[in-house]
Design a protein around this nucleic acid. Sequence first.
DNA 1: CGTAGTATTGAAACGGATCAATATCTGTGG
DNA 2: CCACAGATATTGATCCGTTTCAATACTACG
Lengths: 247, 247
Amino acid sequence: MTAAKHSDRKTPELTQAEPGLRAAPFLEAGSIGAAPVLTERQRQQLLEIATRVRVPARSVVYREQTAATWIFINTEGVLKTFKDLRSGRRWVTAFLFPKDVFGLAKNGLYVRTAQAITPATLYRIESHALIALLRRDAELQFQFLSKVTHELREAQRQTIVVGRRDAVGRVAMFIQQLECTCCDRHNARDIELPMSRSDIASYLGLSLESISRATAKLQRRGIVAFPNRHLARILDRAQFDRLSKAI
Amino acid sequence: MTAAKHSDRKTPELTQAEPGLRAAPFLEAGSIGAAPVLTERQRQQLLEIATRVRVPARSVVYREQTAATWIFINTEGVLKTFKDLRSGRRWVTAFLFPKDVFGLAKNGLYVRTAQAITPATLYRIESHALIALLRRDAELQFQFLSKVTHELREAQRQTIVVGRRDAVGRVAMFIQQLECTCCDRHNARDIELPMSRSDIASYLGLSLESISRATAKLQRRGIVAFPNRHLARILDRAQFDRLSKAI
DNA sequence: CGTAGTATTGAAACGGATCAATATCTGTGG
DNA sequence: CCACAGATATTGATCCGTTTCAATACTACG
């Protein structure tokens, strides 16, 4: 229901949520459609240099323009990365779900600020150690290459979304994106929206008010219902697809 | 002056324009600020499986939704990748300058169409051969990882550009981007714009008319001069930076 | 030198941003 | 457990800039 729902404090300490990477295969990688899963050996290699950390909701994992000591792999919870622009606006660049990697640097500094939206569990890996490992192990590196390639496509999709001029269409595409990202654990047409309306606005390049009006319009037209602020339920799939796909 | 200017037909056949990759180091890569240049050995490895091809202006290198047999490295000229949306609009996703890699696939098919804007020289590499090489050679793969990481940041920048609501600001950011990309061979403040206004519009998510009005406004305010349709000259650097940087 | 594609300029309309007021939710302390 | 306060979200009215439609000008290329 609310953000707190995602915390799940009873999680055992070591049994689950080991590091993995979510990505599409790079250039099909020989084996067509192969699941982009790490082998047991690769997982072990990462675990050897990784530290497991739990962060509460709202905590800042790292701040932009600080030394990029670590990279992170999310295993549980949802986070966001953002950048505060000099205009005062906040630009949300990504929402991070389990198996997402984050912490890419430029000139040794983080480019964005990363903040937990829900309580989250992360694997923290020292950047230099990871780079050394990747340079030794081509297969493991290939998983990262696949991952980054996938992120590149996602970023390009995001450009299309932001480029749409109609607010309703953008929100529809956003909901669809979330549906794809988190489909495994949801039944039927219920989609969790752990982030605030304000975060969605900053992500889609719209004002908070426009998001509100767009969701209201989707609800009024009977296309999507919002049982509460953190849940969306697609009622009219045909109309929804027409909105989200007809770019 | 015109697109034809870029052709340079007297180019010798083999002496110059060997494959290279333009990218920022991934996570600083140990050696801070190191130039992302291929070693002689890596260049040789690529050359062994590469075929050099010359394409005239306007020719389509590959079409979206066709089998992604090759990936390409541009060595000379300018190309664009785009996608025709069902709305009839054309979405230009990238302009490709020398050292850019293109031809990434999804499910074995090209995602965009690639077309030459000026006459261009490319290296064509069989996808499977490249993947096999990358899986063997971690160092070479690392160059590609750096490259893709850099592209990811560029794509995110593009999202910011497209997210701006003012046309003049977007055009200013676009010109600045071109300035950064091609600075090596230009003196002073002259920036080549090999692509058409229409391409720029499709890239920035604006209408052709808005581009025209934006360039007119930049010229009227004395910030940028456009001696002809394929050239921009920054006159007032301070004002220009204020526009392009103040996101 | 003419034609087709490309670019510029004008007028009107649509849609999101902004400002402002109100409503709802969340988490805290009484 | 309830009440309160601050944050978050909704709704309304107006303004501004881009889109669109339309007419004209320019450029490139045969």
